[in-house]
Design a protein around this nucleic acid. Structure first.
Length: 1014
RNA sequence: GCCCCUGUGGUGUAAACGGCAACACAGCAGGCUUAUAACCUGCAAGCACCGGAUUAGUGCGCGAUCCGGGUUCGAAUCCCGGCGGGGGCACCA
């Protein structure tokens, strides 16, 4: 192993007696090439399973993976998410936990279906749902394959060959079963909700399927009468705060009819009008236009007068504002419908804005029109048809009680066919967009065609104040390019407030109660997560789980063909789930109802045996929300709830949310004990990364450029509780940092080339004191780092290890050690002592770095002498205990290094004066007093090594002299004697021994010891 | 419109509790040529004082904590108000 120190005769090879470092651990990392090789090796030895095996029987620590959407390639945010998960899993394995990691993929849903739609084009309409689903399944499978490859490339260990897929048989079956839990508890109901509806294709459209195009609608201003008793009520209300306005109203009331003036661009929605919304905070005005009084928003009095030409109508005066009052004063009053004999309730809504917005479904378009300078339109009084608009619908819900009488009337008239009591919404338009029969005068007309007729009718009856054509952007169907309408259709909901039926082990809690309770029990990092989550549940409406799509888990409900009875039954669902288990949920489309239902099933209402199947599928959030139960509890026999969820902040409304719902439905409990949220990735300036802004950095590019290790180091160095910055400059810094860490390890490894821990290890008590100091320092940093890992604080891990490597090791300890390592006889006590310390240090360093620098730590590990686990990831963290005397040692040496730093400053001065070059050319003269003198005297023998100089003199001196650093005075002059050719120390002893004319006494001793007499 | 998070040298990050703003990189000036595409050291403004002068030393205010106020003996930290960035809700693409 050693080169021969002595050549055969005359030449004495001095160089060969210097123990320079040797190692196969290359200085150049060459990560882009070496990482894949290491991955292959891990794969080969099945490292993940090995780790699980090594920890079998130990306490479990379960991080449950939030499934990324199996659509596009991974981006920097998903990469960070996976790397953080890997930190958690690897570090917990090294803490001694059995820490499984089952990655998953979210496979159902609209984006995939849309993608497939586009690919299939016109063909899709001819395809059966089963074939479409097959195409979606295929697409998801391909995308997740690519993602898997990319995730693995990051160095993330897990069950990659068997991830969980929300589209697998078992998973789809469990999703259906979990829906059954909601059913069993009585949380599920069918209600109504407004959706985009294409009357041409006769289908609901998702938002993503709507495109906005230019469209011309009739803009109309319509009078809704406000009866005398209602005006009196308004005056009575105002009397409390504003007697004048009140009196003025009453005065005007003599003979003049009052109207609320509304504006809309969708005349066809007027038959469905049930109310008028005003903003409670805005001022409204009663405006006398001569023979009539109109109520409009105060700020729009002029605009409306102008637009409707109201000045022309009254030859003797301008419109006169009779009274002003808050919108809130109108709430609850009953205007009359413009022509139908029923009340139109005055409602308040914050969504009502000035400047023209009227119908909810065209609000956007008006704003758009304004930008274009089309001018103001609207009255501040918004015609509200709960069946035809989003805000309208919500207002309809809000005022359900006040509208009850109207609904009773409609129901009696047969205008609410087949709707569920309590959840009914008036929507007199059928699938084809035709008015239903009770709409007098317009029954059977298609809504867009009816527009003109309605306007004419309004003009004839005198309700119309003004009309004009109005060009704006209006939603159209992306497939047939026809304008769409807003229409309420039946949807399945999960109720937030219905108390649970008391069946099985369930509590009687409503989902909202349960959620608010569980949120308190979960640990949230950062802590504001709790607030955010509970705020979310306090306000959230019932969960609409229906999607009118194909690619997902069907809502497993049947309808009796004979009597229309809805079969919403957990036992039936359980049976269907059994079929899914065998055939996937495709069975819902491929099989007849009879096959899916239990044998001999008959309608509980009419005993009929013919059934149709529900066509809606479940919201994808329901799928992924089922994951903890489908995966942990069902598929993999892991404990539930999980110890930890960690995702981006978008998951508060997403996965964290739906998972909690499902956990509550099944077990009255949150599926997680702890939830960590990490920030978004942003660019160097803190701006969001977008493909369109061009500041996005793709993980695959970074890997190609610098290696996955750099990405991992980036994640570790960043504070993930905030937004995380990434730029090329940051990456450059990280490459530097990486190099520093790598070289630090390399030095230690290089100096262990002849060290066999079994044979050469020196017991700690017999080590040199500085080496014992180094051992204590290593333990100190281990404690700090392991602690940080326990707190998921990887930034502290990074900084602790980085500072330790650069300062403690590289700048101080290793520098001091060089002389001893290189010039002492190989097997001398002093060298072995140093090597023992290096051995411990690099062993600790590899373990502590392993979760972060997964590749490099393993490479270090392989280069440490001695027998050890096949991979550092199989090892555990160093035992982080403080030993007797560590504290004192660290303190004493801290002070010695302060002196060292002072000495170095003086050395630098002399270097600038050209008195010395290398520090070994120096003689240091120390004059000290007090405690400093005592300390230096105690360590006098070691001062040469500590300062890395050739000669040191220590004198006791009184303080108060020039050149004082506290109680220490440092002088530096050139060392005496001659430079030893071997160790470069300067010494008077060089030349004393004629056999070694160029060596100093110390080297001669070491050479004789190590390589024998000459 | 409302709410939450965030802002420290050129760059990246530190600094329980309010207590000397630290580390590294980059930059500058050097050293070493035995970690060598490595490693090591030093350096970040001013005024006054001391002093023949240089090196060094002393005192003061000041400082890179986004800006402006406030609380405090003392603020990066706590409070209020702005500005920039990010996100959420509502709404919209």
């Amino acid at each position: 192993m050693f080169e021969r120190a002595m050549t055969t005769d005359t030449t004495f090879d001095l160089k060969a007696t210097v123990n320079l470092p040797r190692t196969g651990f290359a200085q150049k990392a060459n990560l882009t090439q070496r990482e894949p090789e290491r991955l292959a090796r891990w794969n080969h030895i099945d490292l993940y399973s090995e780790i699980r095996r090594a920890r079998a029987g130990r306490p479990l620590f379960v991080l449950h993976d939030g499934p990324p959407y199996a659509n596009s390639d991974i981006h920097i945010g998903t990469a960070m998410n996976k790397i953080l998960k890997d930190f958690i899993v690897k570090s917990h394995a090294m803490m001694g936990y059995d820490a499984p990691y089952v990655p998953g993929y979210d496979c159902h849903g609209l984006p995939i279906e849309n993608y497939v739609d586009k690919k299939l084009g016109a063909k899709k309409s001819q395809m059966s749902p089963v074939s479409i689903r097959r195409a979606c399944r295929e697409h998801a499978a391909q995308a997740l394959k690519r993602q898997t490859r990319d995730f693995q490339r990051l160095g993330v260990l897990g069950e990659w060959d068997d991830p969980y897929l929300t589209m697998s048989n078992a998973y789809e079956a469990e999703t259906a079963r979990l829906f059954g839990h909601f059913v069993e508890r009585g949380y599920v109901y069918k209600g109504a909700r407004p959706v985009y509806w294409c009357i041409h294709d006769q289908t609901a459209l998702a938002e993503a399927e709507v495109e906005y195009r230019e469209h011309t609608s009739p803009s109309i201003y319509v009078k809704f009468p406000l009866p005398e008793d209602q005006v009196r009520e308004l005056a009575r209300r105002l009397a409390e705060t504003d007697k004048e306005a009140s009196a003025a109203l009453l005065a005007d009331l003599g003979g003049k009819p009052f109207f609320v003036l509304i504006w809309t661009t969708t005349p066809w929605t007027l038959p469905a009008n049930l109310g008028i919304a005003v903003n409670p905070r805005f001022d409204y005005a009663a405006m006398d236009v001569g023979k009539e009084v109109y109520i409009v928003a105060n700020d729009l009095v002029e605009a409306v007068s102008e637009k409707c030409g109201l000045r022309m109508n009254t030859f003797y005066c301008e419109p006169r504002v009779v009274a002003r009052f808050r919108g809130s004063a109108l709430e609850g009053l009953q205007a009359r419908h413009a022509w139908i004999d029923r009340p139109s309730l005055l409602m308040t809504g914050e969504y009502v804005t000035l400047g023209g917005e009227s119908d909810a479904e065209t609000e956007l378009d008006v704003a758009d029109a304004q930008k274009k300078g089309t001018g103001k339109a609207g009255t501040g009084c918004v015609h509200t048809a709960p069946g035809h608009g989003h805000d309208d619908f919500l207002s309809g819900q809000k005022y359900r009680a006040q509208l009850a009488a109207v609904y009773d009337q409609l129901r009696e008239a047969g205008a609410l066919p087949g709707q569920m009591e309590g959840a009914e919404v008036y929507c007199p338009v059928d699938n084809a967009g035709r008015f239903s029969s009770e709409i007098e005068g317009f029954a059977g007309q298609q809504v867009f065609e009816a527009n003109k007729n309605i306007v004419d009718f309004l003009r004839d009856t005198g309700a119309l104040v003004f009309t004009e054509d109005y060009a704006h952007r209006y939603p159209h169907c992306w497939r047939c390019h026809q304008p769409v309408i807003f229409r309420v259709t039946p949807q399945w909901f999960i109720s937030m407030d219905t108390p649970s039926k008391e069946v099985r082990e369930y509590s009687s809690d409503s989902l909202r109660e349960g959620a608010l309770r569980e949120v308190e029990r979960v640990r949230w990092i950062p802590a504001w997560g709790r607030e955010r989550m509970s705020g979310m549940f306090k306000g959230r409406p019932d969960w609409c789980v229906s999607r009118q799509r194909v690619w997902g888990v069907p809502i497993t409900v049947f309808y009796c063909s004979d009597c229309g009875e809805t079969i919403l039954d957990a036992e039936v669902i359980e049976h269907v789930a059994g079929v899914f288990e065998r055939e996937t949920a495709d069975a819902w489309y491929a099989r007849e109802a009879e096959y899916l239902l239990p044998d001999g099933f008959a309608c509980p209402a009419c005993k009929g045996t013919n059934f149709t199947k529900e066509t809606d599928i479940l919201d994808v959030w329901f799928d992924s929300g089922s994951s903890s139960l489908a995966v942990l509890a069902r598929e993999r026999s892991l404990p539930w709830p999980a110890d930890i969820y960690i995702e981006g902040p978008d998951q508060y409304r997403g996965w964290f949310n739906s998972s909690l719902m499902v956990g509550l439905a099944a077990h009255d409990q949150a599926p997680y004990k702890m939830v960590i949220t990490h920030g978004w990735t942003v660019d160097g300036e803190g701006k969001a990364m977008h493909k369109s802004t061009g500041n996005a950095i793709s993980p695959n590019e970074v890997i190609k450029e610098s290696g996955a290790e750099i990405l991992r180091l980036w994640v570790a160095s960043s504070d993930y509780t905030e937004d995380v910055r990434l730029s090329n400059e940051i990456l450059k810094r990280l490459v530097d940092a990486y190099r520093k860490l790598r070289n630090t390890a390399r030095f230690a490894l290089g100096n262990l080339f002849d060290f066999d821990p079994e044979r050469d290890r020196v017991p700690e008590t017999e080590m040199w004191e500085i080496d014992r100091w180094a051992m204590a320092a290593s333990r100190e940093v281990s404690r700090k780092v392991v602690d940080a890992y326990k707190n998921f604080d990887y930034t502290s891990v990074y900084h602790a290890l980085y500072n330790y490597s650069t300062v403690t090791l590289s700048a101080i300890y290793f520098d001091i050690l060089k002389d001893r390592l290189y010039t002492f006889a190989p097997e001398s006590e002093g060298r072995r002592s140093a090597q023992t310390a290096l051995y411990e240090i690099v062993d600790c360093l590899a373990r502590l770095l392993a979760p972060i620098l997964a590749f490099t730590a393993d490479e270090i590990w392989e280069n440490i002498p001695g027998s050890r686990e096949a991979s550092v990831h199989l090892a555990e963290f160093p035992e982080a205990v403080e030993r007797e005397g560590d504290k004192e040692l660290l303190e004493a040496w801290r002070r010695l290094f302060e002196v060292r730093s002072t000495v170095q400053k003086t050395l630098e001065e002399k270097r600038n004066e050209k008195v010395i070059g290398a520090s070994l050319e120096a003689r240091v003269i120390l004059r000290a007093s007090g405690a400093t003198f005592e300390l230096l005297e105690k360590y006098e023998d070691l001062l040469l090594a500590i300062f890395i100089v050739s000669q040191v003199e220590l004198h006791w001196t009184e303080a108060q002299e020039r050149n004082l650093y506290g109680e220490l005075r440092v002088e530096v002059e050139h060392a005496s004697g001659t430079k030893c050719e071997r160790c470069w120390n300067w010494s008077e002893s060089v030349g004393e021994d004629a056999s070694y004319p160029t060596l100093d006494a110390r080297c001669i001793r070491q050479v004789k010891k190590g390589w024998g007499e000459r």
